[in-house]
């Protein structure tokens, strides 16, 4: 089975992200970069599928040279090869999907996994765009997944206020939701082998962003909370304030 996992290289969740001098991008200084947490579920799903069937897992990432480090994290977890679509120019979701799709279209993928969203720009678009561009079914936000011997897929998806069970068929694009599995720790041997596993470099065809970022800013600072009292006696005051001051009830 030929399995691909599209991953992204994102700032660590504990990093205090700052807006860069241009006012429309993240300031990369002092940022530690990690494998996008949702992509860890995707890598794990790919590895489990490989272990259940014969196959090969390739980790794919679009971006500058620094993303190789993130590709190697996937390799350390147990993926076989890397595929680096090199570009120093940041792209919008459509452009990234286009680069991924043109790279993957002739590679006879049986499954393409990705995370439900990349926690840097939070587009939530990759699985849908890739499915359309490659003319494959896309099963998004899967929190439970079974891929049967005959290539049929059964997945549970989280939807607003409930769960949905869907069926589809390989080849397909699947995006992983938290809870899909319990991503493994990279083993020490895996970490050492990562540097020795091949990473293929490819150049994407040119692209002009369709969506332009004009400005990036931090959310407004929250004003201090207010304690209106303690115990049941405070409820009356709280309701009054919610009604009159906050005007939410």
């Amino acid at each position: 089975m030929n399995i691909f996992v599209c991953v992204s290289h994102v700032p660590d969740t504990t990093t205090k992200v700052q807006v860069g001098e241009d006012g429309k991008s993240i300031d990369p200084s002092g940022v530690t970069w990690i494998l996008n947490p949702y992509d860890e579920y995707a890598v794990e799903a790919a590895l489990q599928l490989k272990e259940a069937r014969e196959g090969e897992v390739t980790v794919v990432c679009f971006g500058p040279d620094a993303v190789k480090e993130t590709i190697r994290k996937g390799l350390a977890m147990g993926a076989d090869k890397g595929l680096h679509i090199k570009s120093d120019q940041p792209r919008d979701s459509f452009g990234t999907a286009k680069a991924l799709a043109e790279t993957l279209k002739d590679r006879e993928a049986d499954v393409i996994f990705c995370g439900r969203q990349s926690i840097d720009y939070d587009g939530w678009q990759m699985a849908g765009l890739l499915g359309e561009m490659l003319d494959l079914p896309s099963v998004t936000v899967a929190s439970k997944l079974e891929i049967k011997e005959d290539g049929s897929i059964e997945a549970e998806r989280e939807i607003e206020g409930g769960m949905e069970t869907v069926v589809s068929k390989l080849p397909a694009v699947i995006s992983a939701q938290k809870g899909l599995n319990d991503p493994r720790y990279p083993k020490l041997q895996g970490i050492m082998q990562a540097k020795r596993k091949p990473i293929e470099d490819v150049e994407p065809s040119p692209y002009k962003n369709r969506v332009e970022v004009l400005e990036m800013s931090k959310p407004p600072v929250k004003s201090a909370g207010k304690i209106v009292g303690e115990g049941p006696d405070a409820v009356k005051e709280l309701v009054k304030l919610l009604h009159e001051e906050a005007k939410v009830i």
């Binding site: 720790y185 990279p186 083993k187 020490l188 041997q189 970490i191 050492m192």
Partner: peptide, 19 residues
């Protein structure tokens, strides 16, 4: 043992982490 932390220091040829 599973993640390899019982062999961190030793060369890979003996099953260690090679670190």
């Amino acid at each position: 043992g599973e993640v390899g932390l019982f062999g961190t220091v030793f060369p890979e040829e003996y099953g260690g982490g090679g670190f």
